[in-house]
């Protein structure tokens, strides 16, 4: 499968933090979700891909930025501008800016064209940024926390937009998010970053089909092989164990319950869990 982004041996150090990515490929036609706790390096990686920051070493191959739609973590349009000014500016920035499409998104998102950006709520600003990112027919969307500040209804509508965007198999999305449930709905692949390094790069199908949470009592826990435990946490009812081969574990530990995993569970167990 052809990659739309290739990151190889990238290192970037600053302010006591080091981003160290050995290899990351974003296949064409995929939605890839970046997860990790605050300060893990998600935004730094996205900034490096977008050329906002320069890397110390390594290679990043990405398509021309005229074909990339962007939503950054912080709001970036001068707040003094009105919504309609974005159209006036962007049609001179992008050759393939689609004015009609932009105004359709404004209508869909209930954004008034004469409203000053400073008077928009955080969620409304995000919607404007998403509308802008989509209105020049990009092939790749790079989105840093695109759904933060959106209410559940609007989040669902935005996720549907992303799914519609990806219907064209030449289009791809790389997004970082703290709302990990979004990824369970739309992502093809999940990349987990911790302390500047990728600690897990997995397809959603692999995660959902093979990973799980094995729940057991203290007595049962003592009988579980160390090699079957990726990480575990003790709770008031017993133990929650992260496993990566549900079918095998079901047969092996018949007294235990195996629950479906969520991306939140995965993050918490890997970051906070213990090794036996």
């Amino acid at each position: 499968m052809e990659n739309i982004i290739e990151v190889k041996d990238v290192i970037k150090s600053y302010n006591g933090f080091k981003l160290d990515i050995n290899s990351l490929n974003i296949p064409k036609g995929n939605i890839v979700g970046l997860i990790g706790e605050n300060g893990a390096g998600k935004t730094t990686l996205l900034k490096a891909i977008l050329g906002i920051i320069k890397t110390d070493s390594g290679n990043i191959n990405v398509i021309d930025n005229k074909d990339i739609g962007i939503v950054l973590d912080d709001s970036f349009f001068p707040e003094i501008l009105q919504v309609k000014d974005i159209d006036a500016i962007m049609k001179k920035v992008y050759d393939n800016w689609d004015r009609e499409l932009f105004y359709n998104y404004l209508k869909e998102f209930n954004l008034k064209k004469n409203k000053a950006i400073k008077n928009l709520s955080k969620g409304m600003k995000k919607k404007l940024e998403i509308a802008t990112a989509l209105s020049h027919h990009p092939k790749l969307l790079i989105l840093d926390e695109p759904t933060s500040g959106l209410d559940p209804l609007m989040r669902s509508e935005v996720l549907d937009l992303f799914l519609k965007f990806i219907e064209d198999e030449n289009n791809s999305i790389l997004l970082s998010t703290h709302i990990t449930s979004d990824l369970e709905h739309i992502a093809d692949k999940i990349v987990f970053i911790n302390k500047g390094k990728i600690i897990l790069d997995i397809s959603r199908d692999d995660l959902m089909d093979n990973y799980g949470i094995l729940k057991c009592s203290k007595e049962d826990f003592e009988n579980i092989d160390n090699k079957d435990i990726i990480a575990y946490r003790k709770n008031r009812y017993g133990y929650a164990i992260l496993i990566d081969d549900k079918k095998k574990m079901e047969k092996k530990y018949k007294n235990c319950i195996i629950d479906r995993i969520t991306v939140d569970d995965l993050m918490i167990l890997i970051l906070k869990g213990e090794k036996k």
Partner: peptide
Amino acid sequence: SYDSYNNWDSYAVCLPNGR
């Protein structure tokens, strides 16, 4: 000042020929 206050430059450099 407006550019600085709204982090415009981080977006501008991502646009075609932005820098």
